[in-house]
Every structure is written in C-alpha cells, then in structure tokens.
C-alpha cells in the first residue's frame, strides 16, 4: 500500500515530523530485573524490547529453539545462545509467530554472532551465555533495537567485551526504480517508512567505522548504498553515546545508593 510521502520533498519533514538525520527518542534502562545476571529495557520510538542475560554458566541441556552463534561451536569459547520471543500483541494486527519462524531464527543467529564478535568469549571456556529477548512492541528498526538491548544487558551482566555494539537503521527516500539524484538518506526508520522505502540495518563496534552487522532486505540502487551506510554508521555512533550515557548514569546512581563500592577506576563517572 503506497503511502503518501510526497510531502517530504516540500517541507523535508518525515511522516512523524523528524528531519532526515534525526533519531527517534531512545530510552533505555539497565538492571531492570533482579533475578537475572543482566537485563535491559530499550525503546526506540515505539519499538520496545526487553532483554535478559543469564550466564556465563554451565551449558544446560539444549532446550528451546535458540540458535547458537560464536566461534563455530568450539568449546574453548563460550557459546552465545539467543532466544527471541516476538509477543503476539507486539504488532498492530495480532500475528503469532512460531518458534520455527525463519525470520526470527535468522535474527537470533544475527544477534548471537554480533555479540560473539565483541564479547570476550574465550575467557569462559565450556560455558554458555543465554540471551533471551522479548519484543513487546514493534515499530520498525526491530533488529537494531534487539542488538542494542542485548548489548546493554551484556554490559549489565558484566561480561567482558571490547566495546558497545550499537545498531540503527538507515533508508533512502527514493524507491528502487526511481533514478532521481535528489534522494536523501534517512536515519532510523519507523514501521511505515520501512514498509515503503529501501532500508538497511547497520551495527558498528564502538566508535569505529567497523561494521559488525549489515542487513539490507529491500531493492536499492547500488549508488545509494554509500549514502545510506554513511548515515547509518553515523547513527550508530549517536546510539552508542546514548547507550553509554544510560550505563554511566546507572553506575553513578548505584554508587550514590551505595549498591557498589566506588572503585579507583570509576573516577570518570563523576
């Protein structure tokens, strides 16, 4: 169903009133749940995701439909097992997805492999890190939200990692057929835009330009790729800042509350 985006060229404002390079409101919390080793809650606009991390722990009997990733299953590294549950009420029309859904399985494997690249899995041989993700509400950029939430939960769980894996989406105002040169790249697409415009999900490691995940599922001119990727990588840096702030604020609060002792290495938190 083509949506009327012709207004974009007039005011350069998108359907939800953002400019091309604006992120949606990103709100995140860590340590949302007492029982888990690590947990987080993340909102990117109306996309809401919860993440719970257990482990590193002894690998239990392999249950459920989780897909493991990381280091080709070598037992000298910890295995990252990701389980994604997309709640039936998460989309506008209720749609139930079974565990066998290939799209979900692909996302599980993507998140697992992305985390395995930044976590120091070699420190925990013969063990397993369980990441369970719950999608409560979907409004575009789902994979990006899942990666960000998983990163935060791993930070909370205290698993050593190289840097944040931050993700966001980027799109382009042109359709694949149109060869117009005036097409603008867009940052952080919502569901409506994702349906209609070519888009890609990028995840980068820390402050660098190095891409961990790049997923594009729509037809787009190859010449658009550079612009979209540049905007996406830039967006990831913004997301990384936001995630970092969440972690620091929580750390500061925990020191104030006396939950943790202030260590010497934490001076920069002030």
């Amino acid at each position: 169903m083509p949506l009327d985006t012709s207004t974009y060229s007039l005011a350069l404002l998108r359907v939800d009133g953002r400019r091309w390079n604006e992120l949606r409101r990103l709100h995140a919390q860590i340590r949302t749940q007492a029982a888990a080793d690590g947990s987080s809650y993340l909102e990117m606009g109306h996309t809401k995701v919860m993440c719970v991390v257990t482990g590193p722990s002894e690998p239990g009997p392999r249950r459920g439909g989780g897909i493991g990733g990381g280091a080709g299953g070598q037992s000298k590294d910890a295995e990252v097992v990701v389980n994604i549950v997309i709640a039936g009420f998460s989309s506008v029309d209720r749609k139930r997805r079974g565990r066998g859904d290939k799209r979900t399985q692909e996302m599980q494997s993507t998140v697992a492999n992305a985390l395995a690249a930044s976590l120091h899995t070699h420190l925990f041989p013969h063990s397993q890190i369980n990441v369970s993700l719950h999608v409560l509400s979907q409004d575009g950029s789902l994979l990006a939200a899942l990666i960000n939430a998983a990163t935060l939960a791993c930070v909370d769980a205290g698993i050593p990692m190289t840097d944040y894996v931050a993700a966001c989406t980027a799109g382009s105002t042109s359709t694949y057929a149109a060869n117009d040169e005036s097409a603008d790249p867009l940052l952080d697409l919502n569901h409506q835009e994702e349906q209609e415009l070519p888009s890609l999900t990028v995840a980068t490691l820390g402050d660098s330009d190095r891409v961990v995940v790049l997923v594009c599922e729509s037809r787009v001119q190859i010449s658009r790729l550079e612009g979209m990727l540049a905007v996406g990588v830039d967006g990831c840096k913004q997301v990384r800042e936001l995630l970092d702030r969440v972690v620091r604020e929580k750390g500061q609060r925990m020191i104030l509350e006396g939950t943790v002792e202030k260590g010497t290495g934490l001076n920069d938190l002030d």
Partner: peptide, 13 residues
C-alpha cells in the same frame, strides 16, 4: 515483578 525477581508481562488484544 515478584520480589524474587521473576517478572511477567501480559498483553491483551
């Protein structure tokens, strides 16, 4: 959320 940390979410559509 129970005090032991178990947590559940229910959505009705």
């Amino acid at each position: 959320c129970f005090a032991d940390g178990t947590e559940a979410i229910v959505g009705v559509k």
